[in-house]
C-alpha cells in the first residue's frame, strides 16, 4: 500500500510507513509540544526527499515565523518557495472554507500551479472560533477535509490542547471522527523533569503502533525515541512506576536463584 512518509523515522515506523495518501491526519498537543514542527517536517521531507510539493496554510502565524522556525532546523523555506515547490499561505478559516466550496478556487489554483500533494493546516482549532456548536464544527471540518482530499492532498492538521499536562477536557472527539489518523503529543512529568510523549491513537485503514514513545525536538526536527518503560498513566501527564518497578526501586532487583 502506498504511503506518504513523514520523514520522521520513528513516527513512520509507528505508522507502518507513513500516512495513507489523500488522508487527513490530526496532530494534537499543548503549546510547545512540536505540532507545527512535525507538520513542517512532513512538508519539508515531502518536497526534498519525496519530490512532492506542498502547501502550508496558516490561520494565525505569519509566514515569516515559519521561515524563522524552519531555518533553525536548516530548512530553507524561502528557497523552496522561490523554486515553486512550496507556498506558505496566510488566510482565515472562513475564507478557506468558502473557497474550497468553489470550483477553481484560490487553494485549487495554488495546488495546480505547483503540483502540491501535501498540506499542513495550522491550526484546525480556528474552526472552533467559527462554530460554537459541536455538530456544526464537525460538519464544517468534515466539509473542509473532504475539500482537501478532493484536491488530492495528504494533510496534517494541527489542533491545540487547552491543558499542558494530562488529558484535555475539550479534546476534539468530534474532529477525531472526521480525520483518518490521530496523533497525540503530550508533556509528561517524570522525576521532576518534563519529557514529551507521542501516541498514534488511530489510523484508519492501516496498522499502527500502540505504544507510547518518547520524543525530542532537536536541531534537525522531531526525533522519536524508545517507548516509556516501567511506567503507567503516561498520558495523564504524571505517570507512576508500575508495581514491579516500584518494588525494585524500593528493595532492589531480586537476584536470580542459582
Amino acid at each position: 500500500m502506498e504511503r506518504k512518509p513523514t520523514g520522521i523515522i520513528g513516527l513512520d515506523e509507528m505508522l507502518d510507513g507513513g500516512f495513507l495518501p489523500e488522508t487527513a491526519n490530526l496532530v494534537e498537543g499543548a503549546p510547545g509540544t512540536g505540532k507545527t514542527t512535525l507538520g513542517l517536517q512532513f512538508i519539508y521531507s515531502g518536497i526534498t526527499v519525496q519530490q512532492e510539493p506542498g502547501l502550508v496554510l496558516t490561520f494565525e502565524e505569519f509566514p515569516q515565523q515559519y521561515y524563522r522556525d524552519a531555518a533553525g532546523m536548516g530548512w530553507d523555506l524561502p528557497a523552496l518557495e522561490a523554486a515553486n515547490k512550496l507556498r506558505v499561505i496566510m488566510t482565515s478559516p472562513e475564507v478557506t472554507q468558502a473557497d474550497l466550496r468553489q470550483v477553481g478556487g484560490l487553494l485549487e489554483t495554488h495546488v495546480r500551479e505547483i503540483g502540491a500533494q501535501r498540506i499542513l493546516v495550522d491550526s484546525i482549532s480556528h474552526f472552533e472560533r467559527l462554530n460554537r456548536d459541536r455538530i456544526d464544527l464537525r460538519e464544517s471540518v468534515y466539509g473542509f477535509v473532504n475539500g482537501l482530499k478532493r484536491l488530492g492532498l495528504t494533510a496534517v492538521l494541527t489542533r491545540e490542547s487547552t491543558t499542558l499536562l494530562g488529558g484535555d477536557p475539550n479534546i476534539g472527539q468530534d474532529i477525531a471522527f472526521v480525520v483518518d489518523s490521530y496523533i497525540l503529543l503530550r508533556y509528561v512529568e517524570i522525576d521532576s523533569a518534563m519529557r514529551r510523549a507521542l501516541l498514534v491513537l488511530k489510523q484508519r485503514g492501516a496498522d499502527h503502533a500502540r505504544d507510547i514513545r518518547q520524543y525530542e525536538i532537536t536541531a534537525a526536527g522531531i526525533d522519536v525515541r524508545a517507548r516509556f518503560e516501567g511506567r503507567q498513566g503516561i498520558m495523564s501527564g504524571t505517570p507512576t512506576l508500575r508495581m514491579v518497578e516500584a518494588f525494585e526501586g524500593a528493595f532492589g532487583r531480586p537476584r536470580p536463584q542459582s
Binding site: 505569519f62 509566514p63 515569516q64 507556498r87 506558505v88 499561505i89 496566510m90 488566510t91 482565515s92 475564507v95 473557497d99 484560490l106 495554488h110
Partner: peptide, 11 residues
C-alpha cells in the same frame, strides 16, 4: 513579506 496572503480587509 507574506506574498501568498489571501484574506478579507477585516482580517
Amino acid at each position: 513579506d507574506n506574498p501568498h496572503t489571501t484574506d478579507t480587509a477585516a482580517n
